[in-house]
Design a protein around this nucleic acid. Sequence first.
DNA 1: GGTTAATATAAGTCACAACTTATTTAGGAG
DNA 2: CTCCTAAATAAGTTGTGACTTATATTAACC
Lengths: 131, 131
Amino acid sequence: MIGTVFDALGDPVRRRILELLGDGERPAGAIAHALHLQFGISQPAASQHLRVLRGAGLVTVRAEGTRRIYGVDTAGLAVIQDWLARFADAFAQPLDALETELARGRRERRRTGRADAARQPRPADAPGVTA
Amino acid sequence: MIGTVFDALGDPVRRRILELLGDGERPAGAIAHALHLQFGISQPAASQHLRVLRGAGLVTVRAEGTRRIYGVDTAGLAVIQDWLARFADAFAQPLDALETELARGRRERRRTGRADAARQPRPADAPGVTA
DNA sequence: GGTTAATATAAGTCACAACTTATTTAGGAG
DNA sequence: CTCCTAAATAAGTTGTGACTTATATTAACC
């Protein structure tokens, strides 16, 4: 799960999509158009990126007629925040405890559902590991 | 810069390295050994991962005799924190303003140096974009 | 000096992910 | 029903990044 999220954010196009959605919901077409202008990629490419973001729980979709309206899903973002919290003390800051507490509260509040996701191509993978 | 950071964290092995370093500094050899056990990869592979993490400002290195002691560099982590702050209001949480403020303070306090970094393989790339 | 140990770099291989074009699915309008 | 538009899926190509083995660097020790 955490792997899926970071994997999704590893791509600049997908980060750009999230930034666009950060300004408000948008139909897939508008996203595809913006990406075509900025990266020169096609509609299917945009659609595939959106699929990855969906699988990572980083965007929400809502059908509206033939349009698919996308928005930011904080569930995925919270996963990152939680992961960063591991290093809270490395930040060596007085208020870190509070920051960690924020992440904890968020974790409880998080949505549930969602299927989809991930293959894990790499060979071995001992227990108790992030991935 | 942000691209380099997310790119680095996109790999489970590199995330695992950071988690290891989160428990305290370690020489490259110890890291390579742990990765060999958990992922079955070689010493050069580990070294290459460390190079990527260095380029992203996610780890610090210090020579000690023939050993290279690695540690977490909060500079890289702060980049993520800052990026997440874009979506602070999406979290729709009362304390978000505070959380954002934490990121801001951290930004000021950040170390300077470091060269290295990134190619940008994708074709077009309009101005004002994350990557 | 030579030898061993710790790490980094070089060079080459291969799987995969990010694209492409073509097609399918599905909803609204005439 | 047919036609158009919006979006997703299918199938195929290709660049690149994560590996490999082999070698170079650098420091310590004898």
